[in-house]
Simulated scan of single mutants.
Amino acid sequence: MLIQLLALMIFVCMDTSLKLMTASYPVLQLTWARFVFSSLMVVTFMWLTMGRLPWRSRAPGLQALRSLLLCGCNIAFTIALAHIPLADATAVGFASPLITLALAALILREEVSPRRWLGVAIGFVGVMVALRPPFLTGAPLHWAYLLPLVMAAMNGLYQILTRRLASLDDSRVTIFHTNIAGGLAATFVQPFVFVSPTALDWLALMGLGVLGALGHGLLVLAYARAPASLLAPLSYTQLIWASCAGVLVFQDWPDGISLIGAAIIAAGGLLAALPQRR
């Protein structure tokens, strides 16, 4: 559980860094740094610990699609961070576990109990509140609030592919391929968007990749040591870290609508995540 909490804190640190750097660098350049330096870190770690790279996949097309979906998630979320508070973007993005559950039932034909469907419904009510619709705020809906919802949908498909690939490839193969296709796709567009970083900013760009790889690595370690039913509800603590980072770094204090929306999303997510028991 402590490893899971640490991983979530690291993800918030990465998101905070991304939001800060969107003021100076294009989103596609930040995405490139996140994926390329994560890939280099994963490749180096596997080479040192295994003496080889587990690159052979039984489903290379699905691996590439999964990586591209993760790249799309990062692009959508980073664009959103440039325009809306970190806590709001994180709250709306937590529609992802609910979408994953719904897609698992529809695509993978997994059995979903009525209680979990109720959790999905409650969670989406929270998402509608967190989107800050005009009838609650009296102001037009900002288009950037829709991007975390797009990210959540793509992340839901990403998680479905992760489950599908678990029956086809070794987990190390999937970890190896996670950043490859996304990094290559982002590399191709760099001649059109690249802004030369300072020496200090190069370290910050590399830090994005290190934080991303470290966070995902810790998640793998956590889920190898505890059941998903215990760890999944802890994901909602990320809302706390994101709110703290928004206040401390950006002076973005969450208002009543943000807090109510986040609370409803968390309640629905927890109801859906609880294990089946009497």
Rank of each mutant, 00 (worst) to 15 (best):
R66H: 08
V129G: 14
T237P: 06
R66V: 00
F250K: 01
I3G: 00
L6I: 10
G119W: 11
S171F: 13
A130Q: 03
P26C: 11
C73A: 11
K19L: 07
L231G: 08
L40H: 03
Q251S: 12
F37C: 10
S171P: 15
A263V: 10
T44Q: 03
F35V: 09
I107M: 06
T162N: 01
L98T: 13
L270I: 14
L234Y: 15
S167N: 07
L146Q: 09
V193H: 12
L205Q: 07
S229R: 13
V120R: 00
A242F: 13
T162G: 07
M46T: 02
L161Y: 06
L141A: 07
F11G: 03
G261P: 11
L218S: 12
N155S: 13
V150K: 12
L53W: 11
P275H: 14
P85L: 00
L108R: 09
A262Y: 09
T178M: 04
S17R: 01
I264P: 14
G256E: 12
T162I: 02
A144M: 05
S67I: 10
L168W: 14
L48H: 07
Q29A: 15
S167L: 08
I84F: 01
P60G: 04
H177M: 08
P191N: 06
L28V: 05
S235R: 00
W241G: 03
P275L: 14
A33W: 13
Y145N: 10
I180L: 06
A226C: 10
P148K: 08
A228M: 14
G156K: 03
L106M: 06
D252M: 00
R115Q: 07
Y25V: 14
A204W: 09
R132K: 15
T178V: 08
A80F: 12
G182E: 01
A272S: 03
L157G: 08
R172H: 15
I122G: 06
T90N: 10
E111D: 04
A245C: 02
A186K: 03
R66Q: 03
L218C: 12
